[in-house]
Design a binder for these strands. Structure first.
Length: 410
RNA sequence: GCGAUCGUAGCUCAGUUGGUUAGAGCGCCGGUUUGUGGUACCGGAGGUCGCGGGUUCGAACCCCGUCGAUCGCCCCA
């Protein structure tokens, strides 16, 4: 019989463990705490949806739909897709579950998302995000609230240093279209001098030329038409209210006129918190206003704004998070005292002390394991001439507490 | 989809111009001191050097292919 080959993990998935898992948990716990401070309500969403939920909202614009989604047919022949983002599913639920009644609705969630991409630093096929949305709020103060929450989150994670909030406006639908037309005209005139990629973008997604990394493109980006010259009075007022609100709320920001969104449903505010500490993946948290999304899913026109952030990237910035040391390690120095050790362990845990019991190896090795674990206290049991005795090494405060607990059942 | 770099014990890595039975640390298992002290010391198990071909008297090392990983490009909802 040939040896069984262990199946390997799927490309782009991760088995997160130890200090990395602690950092991951720290990000999620901090998010949960901050989200409650801002009174965002928790939602749990399905991990997959009908493919249309995503394809309709994303539109035909890019090869995102055809190439980057994990889609498959179920047994009934229906095309389903593992969620590549939270927003579309939440928007669908807003319509199908009658959440209009709660508008303006502030919701937050987190969990795994799936995109069929080549993995690289901070990018995985199954990755995880935290997400916050305000649906049914047209006022710029909603944008401010959302950004203030993001800002506080990054500060409480201790990673605000070196992270900057970049802000832009895409204007309303008409502003955006006029700007886009001007950009196409401008870049078309110099098409031959652009990078090959940007010549492609000119046809498929001209706004993206603005954040091209190619120096040949960057030379022209500086003098490209600015959205500011195409903004309607309303759009100007809206953006001014957002920036003014941020200043009032004490949120630092900087204008980035090249910051764009690829999808058509985005309007007005677009933002990214960016760092230079994550290689090619500089965006730590991003979002914007998506007033056009609900209609693309067959709902009533509904203003909305939201953001999402990759937990893996935040966890990388958070850095090593040690696993907590045990309060008490209980050592059964020989097998005759294992039951005593188990009773003590149980009592200590019941009283809220993180405890672990060691019962294998020689007496010396058992104790050595306890010492290496660096607990606040070591409680060791041994039998001598048939009599069970225990010894305790602990800090003075722990000594008293443990002695009291252990003596209760002696 | 494209490019660069890398694949040696469970983990982190050595391995000198290609030259005997491929090493270390950690971890694991066993042993030594029967002790108001112990995180030490000694020993052992564990590797067809990612996989498949080729060159050579001889390959972990050189060449080709393949699979995988990492980083970057494209894309980024």
């Amino acid at each position: 019989m040939s040896k069984i080959k262990t199946p390997q993990a799927i490309r782009g998935t991760q088995d997160i463990f130890g200090a990395d898992a602690e950092a991951f948990a720290f990000v999620v716990e901090t998010f949960e705490r901050v989200r409650k401070l801002y009174r965002f309500r928790r939602v749990e969403m399905p991990v997959f949806e009908k493919t249309e939920v995503f394809s309709r909202s994303i539109g035909e614009t890019t090869d995102v739909v055809s190439k980057e989604m994990y889609s498959f047919e179920d047994r009934g022949g229906e095309s389903l897709t593992l969620r590549p983002e939270f927003t579309a599913g939440i928007a669908r639920a807003y319509i199908t579950d009658g959440w209009q009644q709660y508008a303006p609705l502030k919701v937050a969630t987190h969990g795994p998302l799936f995109r069929y991409e080549r993995p690289q630093k901070g990018r995985y096929r199954q990755f995880h995000q935290i997400d916050a949305e305000i649906i049914g709020a047209a006022e710029p103060q909603a944008d401010v609230e959302l950004l203030a929450m993001a800002d506080q989150l990054l500060k409480e994670l201790g990673i605000a240093e070196g992270v900057t909030l970049q802000l832009n406006t895409l204007g309303d639908g008409d502003s955006r279209e006029a700007w886009r037309a001007a950009l196409v005209e401008y870049f078309r005139a110099v098409k031959g001098e652009l990078s090959e990629d940007s010549q492609e973008r000119l046809e498929k997604n001209p706004l993206r030329i603005l954040d091209s990394k190619d120096p040949r493109d960057r030379a022209f980006v500086a003098d490209a038409p600015k959205i500011d010259d195409f903004l309607s009075a309303e759009a100007q007022d809206f953006f001014a209210a957002v920036t003014g609100g941020l200043d009032a709320a004490g949120v630092a920001w900087s204008r980035n006129p090249s910051l764009v969104r690829g999808l058509d449903y985005y309007r007005h505010t677009a933002f990214e918190f960016v760092t230079d500490r994550l290689g090619a993946q500089g965006t730590v948290l991003g979002g914007g206003r998506y007033d056009g999304l609900m209609e693309s899913l067959g709902g009533n026109p509904t203003p909305a704004v939201g953001w999402a952030a990759g937990i893996e990237r935040l966890a990388m910035l958070v850095g090593e998070r040690g696993e907590a040391k045990a309060d008490v390690i209980i050592v059964a120095e020989d097998d005759a005292v294992i039951d005593h050790a188990l009773r003590a362990t149980s009592a200590l845990r019941t009283n809220g002390h993180a405890s672990e019991v060691i019962v294998t190896g020689s007496a010396r090795k058992r104790f050595d394991k306890a010492v290496k674990a660096e607990p606040r206290a070591i409680l060791s049991y041994a039998s001598r001439d048939g009599i069970v005795e225990f010894k305790l090494k602990a800090t003075p405060d722990m000594y008293e507490v443990i002695t009291r607990i252990v003596n209760e059942f002696r």
